[in-house]
Design a protein around this nucleic acid. Sequence first.
DNA 1: TTAAATAGGACTAAAATGGTCGTATATTAA
DNA 2: TTAATATACGACCATTTTAGTCCTATTTAA
Lengths: 135, 135
Amino acid sequence: MLHLSKKVEYGLIAIRHIASQPVSEVITAKELSDKYQIPFDMLAKILQKLSKKGLIVSYQGVRGGYVLGRRSDQIKLSDVIYAIEGKQNVSLINCEKENPDSCNIYQTCTIKNPLSKIQNIINGMFDEMTISEIV
Amino acid sequence: MLHLSKKVEYGLIAIRHIASQPVSEVITAKELSDKYQIPFDMLAKILQKLSKKGLIVSYQGVRGGYVLGRRSDQIKLSDVIYAIEGKQNVSLINCEKENPDSCNIYQTCTIKNPLSKIQNIINGMFDEMTISEIV
DNA sequence: TTAAATAGGACTAAAATGGTCGTATATTAA
DNA sequence: TTAATATACGACCATTTTAGTCCTATTTAA
């Protein structure tokens, strides 16, 4: 409970590695997959998501790969998480995730307000920590 | 991702309700189940777990039910969470959950240290907030 | 033109979660 | 002493989520 998904873990490992290399260096999915023992196909799709959000930039074809899309101190952990999971999928309690009426005790529920406080603090941490800090 | 389980939600709702009643009041699982639309069998087992840890006290038989096991300002959210999920099941990253060698990239993983910082802060929040604060 | 690389949809397997069922036991009151 | 009401608890099942695989297409450098 309260886990980050493997996808997010893999995504963080990958983008951290890219950030740790010289900016001119183009990193391939295969290199990352080998170095960190991450299933290639999974990783490929995670990188695609990061690329779609502009966190990294992809080059196709032979000698292609990935580089950072912007400076590592401009990439927040929350950017990575949201790129992979979608913002709405990250929440302590389910009723915040989707429309309230998906929860049939929304009205009578007495814990959602206190827990949102904690939620906000957690969000804040992921907003404040950048990739540059974890390199 | 990053969700509390329904079990924990139900447990918090239940213990909060018990805490909100006069101390002499004995609350049954059925009352809670009805009031908050929580499946009875689920709730029953959650209450048993809380009871085993002494967070609440159970009375069996006719006119039985539950009362708080100690003052509501002495019951931390983390107590409730751990009673229901077990301490080891609450962690941002999987490798902290069990023995490290369950993760085959434990050695090469480069994100576990930064994330444990965040983990510690989250744990801290659940340790500091008590049931009395959410009544 | 070939090889190496990303792009991406469809699918499957495995694990976690949520929920149910059946039975036992305890307690009170009629 | 019996009936009714309550908790105790293991076993089980269904659903959802997560993790992982497969296949094909496209891009591009040499």
